[in-house]
Amino acid sequence: MNNEFGPRGRVASAADDADRAVLVLVAAGQLDALQELYDKYRVMAYSIALRITADASLAEDVVQDAFLGAWRNASRYVEDKGSVKTWLLSIVHHRAVDAVRRRRPTVELPEREDVPPAAMTLPDIWPEVAGNLDREDIAAALTSLSDVQREALELAYFGGLTQQEIAIQTGTPLGTVKSRVRLGLLAMRRALVGAGGDAASDTAGGDRSGDPGGGALA
């Protein structure tokens, strides 16, 4: 768990640095580096894709697309500061959601890039916080969600539904869905930052305005 006096974030940075070193090699076109990345994250990647698509062969295609996307775009991402794992799994997530949406008629898909806009690069504090989190912390953060928040986030994340689709599926006004999604993520962030370390939560104090309890109003 959290070590009060330990060098916070040290473990996270080491892990991130290792990933980053691998990513540099991927960017340089080294196939064995790609294989290393694949072997490290294949179970997570495939599990996410399978959960979202509920289709083993589509999930394989999604994972292949995602790793090829990473292979092609690594050089652009390597300059950013974000976590490689987060980047990779978010590519998987995006592609899986796209794959599910593509199966529905009349859906126009936006061109997504595999490199997040600069504004999406994770702040420096985040990896440090993240490195101190274990599964219990994350599970605890998830319990800080109200049931309706959790449902909305789950339908968006694993169901690949848009806010409008969530509103229709759950028979809830769109505005309510929007606030559940927003307050749910804010609540999780506060819980995660709190669990990850005090130093980090100082920096993140600005978030305290949106109280997660308020999310239950919906």
Binding site: M44, I48, K85, T86, L89, S90, H93, P116, A119, M120, T121, L122, P123, W126, A130, L133, I138, A141, L142, L153, E154, Y157, F158, R182, L185, L186, M188, R189, L192, A204, D207
Partner: peptide, 11 residues
């Protein structure tokens, strides 16, 4: 970035 950092934990 702040909210985006949370999304991977939804896993």
């Amino acid at each position: 970035a702040e909210l985006g950092g949370v999304v991977p934990y939804l896993v």
